[in-house]
Design a binder for these strands. Structure first.
Lengths: 117, 117
DNA sequence: GCCAATATATTGCCTGCCAATATGTAGCAC
DNA sequence: GTGCTACATATTGGCAGGCAATATATTGGC
């Protein structure tokens, strides 16, 4: 998968992997990797600033966890985050439907004039 | 739809609308608009450079058409363009499958470990 | 002792689409 | 005959946003 393929969909990915329970940044990277079958490989320079931003936006909350001398920051969804995730999923469907309708018009499930939001 | 949503998928869109026959730039814009149900609204600053680039890459060929004093440049797919379109469609499926698997794991048709290209 | 994996954080860059702008024809309303 | 809109193409500059590179620290295997 080309390098910055997730552009525009990163927030949704992060919120989605956190839906099933709290995770720290490093674990989020591997979770995304695993769930995408290895296709998506996020970098630290991508997710740490993003997690920070999502927390500032109130979609995530975090607390530090200590394993011996090691510290990790665990993020979890807030209620607002859960709501935002639903929105991101709707956006994703609209997006794939729109592009799909142009790229692959024969495929059922793609947008046809008349399904406005 | 947010402004630069098509980022990374523009070439596929252009090739796809040209699959059914030659079109000039302005008509491509309206074709994409119509086929996406109004969701996608490409700008001239987006498509004219892109069409030019695709022609330089050998995926399109063009010739000028004259309607009275009016001139328009009609693009059509080359064989290479047709092949590239097939590739773009495969890329699109891999992309939606990968993101979908993370964002919406319950949905059937999304990637699961084991469907490498 | 050295290296890889685990873990977080920051800086600067680059890609690639968009907004703005320019230019010209054609047709219609008034 | 002036002004407006639709049709048609082209170019410039800007910027959002993810990535590469880099830095730092702990832990465990060999």
């Amino acid at each position: 998968m080309k390098a910055d393929a997730v552009r525009g969909h990163l927030d949704g990915l992060l919120l989605a992997v956190l839906e099933q329970g709290p995770l720290h940044g490093y674990a989020i990277i591997t979770a995304v990797q695993r769930r995408s079958g290895g296709a998506l490989d996020l970098r630290t320079g991508t997710i740490y600033p993003a997690l920070n931003r999502l927390e500032r936006q109130g979609l995530l909350s975090s607390d530090w966890e200590s394993i011996g001398e090691r510290r990790r920051r665990c993020y979890q969804l807030t209620d607002a985050g859960r709501a935002a995730l639903a929105g991101k999923r709707a956006d994703w469907r609209a997006f794939t439907s729109a592009i799909g309708a142009v790229l692959d018009p024969a495929t059922p499930g793609n947008a046809t004039p008349g399904n406005a939001t």
